[in-house]
Computed example of a mutant assay.
Amino acid sequence: MPAERIANLLEDIRFLDQARFELVQSLREIILGLAPSISEEVKYGGILFASAGQPFCGVFSYARHVSLEFGAGASLPDEYRVLEGEGKLRRHIKLLSAGDIVGKHVREYLALALQASSKP
């Protein structure tokens, strides 16, 4: 059932905007490649990712961008100053194109979030 829900969400995104669909797929590929224990599920209108049951990020597609969300992002080091948001805990990286994945150092932030989620 979770795989079907993910497939349905992805198809909806593809129907609305092929470029955003490809961006979401690129992010999924990177995230799922971080560790064999990573799982994904549709929740809150996006795809949430967890490792060994511990959530560490989510991908949400909006009308004009894709947002990579970190539930505990306020605690992540922000060396490249790309984390947005001013809440107590959450931060996100707004992605407008595939080039933003490299330009905004997404892999590094994902690795930090994954590492932080595994700490007791």
Rank of each mutant, 00 (worst) to 15 (best):
P2C: 01
A3D: 14
E4Q: 14
E4N: 15
R5C: 13
R5A: 15
A7R: 15
A7K: 14
N8A: 14
N8R: 15
L9T: 05
L9K: 03
L10T: 06
E11G: 01
E11F: 10
D12H: 04
D12F: 06
D12K: 14
I13Y: 06
I13S: 01
R14E: 07
R14L: 09
R14G: 05
F15T: 09
F15N: 09
L16P: 00
D17V: 10
D17P: 00
R20M: 03
F21Y: 15
F21A: 14
E22W: 06
E22D: 13
L23I: 11
V24Y: 01
V24S: 03
V24L: 03
Q25I: 13
Q25D: 14
Q25A: 13
S26G: 08
S26V: 02
R28V: 03
E29W: 05
E29N: 10
I30L: 15
I30S: 11
I30H: 10
I31E: 03
I31Y: 05
I31N: 05
L32E: 10
G33F: 06
G33T: 04
L34E: 08
L34C: 09
L34K: 08
L34A: 05
L34R: 10
A35F: 00
A35Q: 08
A35P: 00
P36F: 02
S39R: 13
E40Q: 08
E40T: 00
E40C: 00
E40L: 03
E41G: 10
E41M: 08
V42Y: 09
V42P: 07
K43H: 05
Y44V: 02
G45H: 07
F49R: 05
F49M: 08
A50Y: 00
S51L: 00
S51I: 06
A52P: 04
A52H: 14
A52D: 15
A52R: 12
Q54T: 03
Q54M: 07
Q54F: 09
Q54P: 00
P55F: 06
F56E: 02
C57K: 09
G58H: 04
G58P: 03
G58Y: 00
V59R: 06
S61K: 00
S61A: 11
Y62C: 10
Y62Q: 13
A63I: 07
A63G: 00
A63K: 13
R64G: 12
H65R: 13
H65C: 13
V66W: 03
V66K: 00
S67V: 11
S67H: 08
E69N: 14
G71Y: 14
G71A: 15
A72F: 06
A72R: 13
G73S: 04
A74W: 01
A74Q: 14
S75H: 02
L76T: 02
P77T: 10
P77S: 12
P77Y: 04
D78S: 03
D78R: 11
E79N: 12
Y80L: 08
R81P: 00
R81D: 11
V82K: 12
L83E: 08
G85H: 02
G85C: 01
E86N: 12
E86W: 09
E86T: 11
G87I: 12
K88S: 10
L89D: 09
L89V: 03
L89M: 11
R90S: 14
R91I: 09
H92P: 06
H92F: 08
I93D: 01
K94A: 07
L95A: 05
L96E: 11
A98S: 12
A98P: 01
G99Q: 12
D100E: 03
D100F: 04
D100I: 07
D100C: 10
D100Q: 00
I101D: 01
